[in-house]
Design a protein around this nucleic acid. Structure first.
Lengths: 200, 200, 200, 200
DNA sequence: AATGAATGAGATTTCATTCAT
DNA sequence: CATGAATGAAATCTCATTCAT
């Protein structure tokens, strides 16, 4: 009984987060009203506060929950690949898949995630660091296997890669231009990164 | 007389923008109050509204004015360089110089501007496109001179480069980690991009 | 339950309108602060905005609600009278009764409503037209019964009558002079109008 | 020299009042901004305050100046007429002439004048009383000459007449209906008032 | 647990008025 | 005398959060 209750609670918590993703993506965190999220989730305003401490907490929880899922996805798709180049390429594929799959979620990646870093200086953004480290691990793996230049500054490169992918995604989402599709972007990025990292 | 008058007006406009950069960087756009900006600029609240339509307009004006200066800086530093690799490298140098020179401005560009829905979505961002095109021109120049692979998808690459630089800057500004200094980042980025673009 | 709920809402809406009548009459629409109305109604400032879109809407709603009641009063008092002269006289009696009963409401109608440009010009005033038409109907009735001159320009006369009553009410309310009481005014008006309209 | 200076001053004062009439008529006193009046008058904002103590004073001055002119007009047109009926009819003619001549001025009569009565309770509206008394004098004159019923309550009737004319003017100005022209209204009013007042 | 009406602090913005030029 | 940029008090309205039902 307690189990089913907590099951139900989790369910509702999730549906509020889902609503928040949608609303925050559409209006931005600051312009989104708690009422908007409540209406989207089909609950009363007050109900939000039974599941989250306040609006800020909702953003953080949203971020953590979603990031968790994303990290799982990366892990499950990458952990069996041993070839370093394949691993890097697969990571890029998974990234663009995620973007294509859920534009709203992508927006969370693009904008809210950014904010949250600063937003709460105290809040230590562990999930995001895990994400960056996953990229770092791919590079380290490539260096260990002798595919990538050993003098690569992994810390810098992981940020570079994240930034590059991120910005391509943003431009695609904003639809500011239709001069490229994600497929082309994907291939070009792979090409540049592989050439940039590989040892001759 | 008219000249000195409009000179004075421009002066004040500029000082309000300078104040806004400082305040927005410190508190974030949404948490910064118009009063804060006014106090920082040493003017009355109402004065802000003699120079800007509203708070959003202040942010956008800030962006446009500053971007203008930045583009000028890039132009004056790059237009005489003909060697494609030097041109790319110099662009990266200028970029990081700008970041180092004015951390507050960098913060507003990197973080606060991303938060303004209006800015991101509604506002048609000509100055930003000019910036991206400047990067594109450097690549085209390299291709023309036969230094870069001719099949490079310039449109994708310019976004990649922008994103990579941007993210490195943001991470540095947020000071999330002090595992790298800008000097290291600069060199690593040059290395990767040159290797990634160059024709063998 | 839904009924009692909406009952309660209506109750509060009404009490806000009642408070607005009092406050607007006392300070004038433009000088009255929303806070004043809220305090008078015993609610928080924000509550006003749960029931009315804005301050203007409060004034318009006040007018519509009250006018509705007034029209009902006229109707219930006049509809059974068939003698045209009695009908005209009763209308005048009811009018002055209303004024005497609620001086504050009268003031808002006579003075404050005139100030709201929006109200006077933009707002299409159906309720007010109903009111004028009620007067017109009384005249038509008198003409049909052969009591009033058949060549009377009803459209002009209804406005005249409205204006005359209205101004008498206003002067009485403003208390600019205490040279007459409503009773005297009532009789004089009846006398003049009847003599003015009657067929010999 | 002092004379010509004060001549000039009067000129400018008058032009500011003229501007105020236009602006207040268009926007209403409360919605009109001092800047609007200044621009309309072709002077700087601050200049207004060289001629009037404040915005309220501008309204009062406007009212007094205009009322003065109006009273002069009535006087010059009525003082030579001795026949009471002609006098009453001429007054009505002059009234509608004034309305037709200057719609903006009419609006001042219709709306702003109203406000001013309450607007400043302290301010004793002498000019307006003069106006009402002019009407009263016409009635007294008619009674003295034995044309009008001697028991007429002049105080009430003067207000009635003012109200009736006023409302007809307002309805015509607002153009709410084009069901009557001023000519028709004029004749109807004369007819009713004469029949209402006359002694048999 | 859920609701949603009510709260009230607080932010943006306006505009009458002043005063240095 | 005239100007108009600057002021800053003050008002409307919003919205995160609470709490009685």
């Amino acid at each position: 009984m307690t189990a089913s209750k907590s099951q139900k609670k989790l369910q509702k918590r999730r549906s509020i987060i889902e609503a928040a993703v949608k609303v925050f993506a559409q209006k931005g965190f600051y312009n989104a009203k708690v009422t908007d999220v409540a209406r989207q989730a089909g609950v009363a305003d007050g109900t939000i506060y039974l599941y989250f401490k306040n609006k800020d907490d909702l953003l953080i929880s949203l971020f953590e929950d979603k990031m968790e899922l994303i990290l799982q996805r990366f892990h499950s798709r990458l952990h069996e690949i041993t070839d370093p180049l394949d691993k890097l390429k697969e990571m890029i594929d998974v990234y663009f898949e995620l973007i294509e799959e859920d534009k709203d979620l992508a927006d969370v990646f693009q904008v809210e995630l950014r904010q949250s870093t600063k937003f709460l200086k105290d809040y230590h953004n562990e999930k995001f660091l895990n994400y960056l480290n996953m990229i770092a691990d791919i590079i380290y793996h490539g260096i260990d296997y002798g595919f990538f230049r050993s003098e690569v500054n992994v810390h810098v490169v992981k940020i570079m890669i994240f930034g590059a992918l991120d910005e391509l995604a943003r431009q695609w989402i904003l639809g500011a231009d239709d001069k490229y599709n994600l497929e082309q972007a994907k291939e070009e990025v792979k090409q540049i990164l592989v050439s940039g990292l590989i040892k001759f």
